[in-house]
């Protein structure tokens, strides 16, 4: 990729990052997930602050690699990724767009009540928990009592 002659704006970079999918749930972007905590130019270096979802989430390393790869493809070469653990990530930072996409994909979005509002498939509210944990650290396993489909629920933390 050719070198850029002008620094792209911070807004432009947010837009680029909003096109980088989460490696585990590719229907939502890293920006939707709320884990990009800051984008700043420090002289000629772009500093991107990223917060981990769960401490042991194995996707963290891949996420950093994906961010760097995406930005390099847009012609940036001086990129610094920093891990920011405070304040800790919360599902409140997930975008409305991200929540809608999750449900469309079949994953019930997080709710403050601590359980899914409804089945992402048939929309029934008659749902029951199978397990507090699921296929990734950020999800729990639920089941719809009406359509009988099991589904993932994005845990609210």
């Amino acid at each position: 990729m050719s070198q850029l002659h002008e620094q792209p704006s911070v807004d432009q970079i947010w837009e680029w990052l909003d096109a980088v999918p989460d490696p585990e749930i590719p229907v939502i972007s890293l920006v939707d997930l709320g884990i990009i905590r800051g984008v700043d130019w420090q002289e000629d270096t772009l500093v991107v602050a990223v917060t981990p979802t769960y401490s042991g989430c194995p996707a963290t390393a891949i996420i950093n690699l994906d961010i760097e790869t995406a930005l390099r493809e847009h012609g940036l070469d001086k990129i610094q990724l920093k891990t920011q653990i405070s304040p800790p990530w919360t599902t409140d930072w997930m975008s409305e767009k991200g929540r809608a996409k999750l449900e469309e994909f079949g994953i019930a979005p997080p709710q403050a009540a601590g359980g899914p509002e409804r089945c992402p498939n048939c929309k029934s509210t008659n749902v029951t928990r199978v397990s507090q944990f699921g296929s990734t650290p950020c999800k729990a396993h639920w089941r719809c009592q009406d359509c009988l489909e099991p589904f993932d629920y994005f845990k609210c933390i």
Binding site: P52, Y54, S55, G56, I85, V130, G134, S135, P137, H141
Partner: peptide, 20 residues
Amino acid sequence: LEEDIALANTALDLIGQTQM
């Protein structure tokens, strides 16, 4: 299976916390 996943996830959290 559900308990297997729950225990593995708990272990993963703990190892992640260890790194910090």
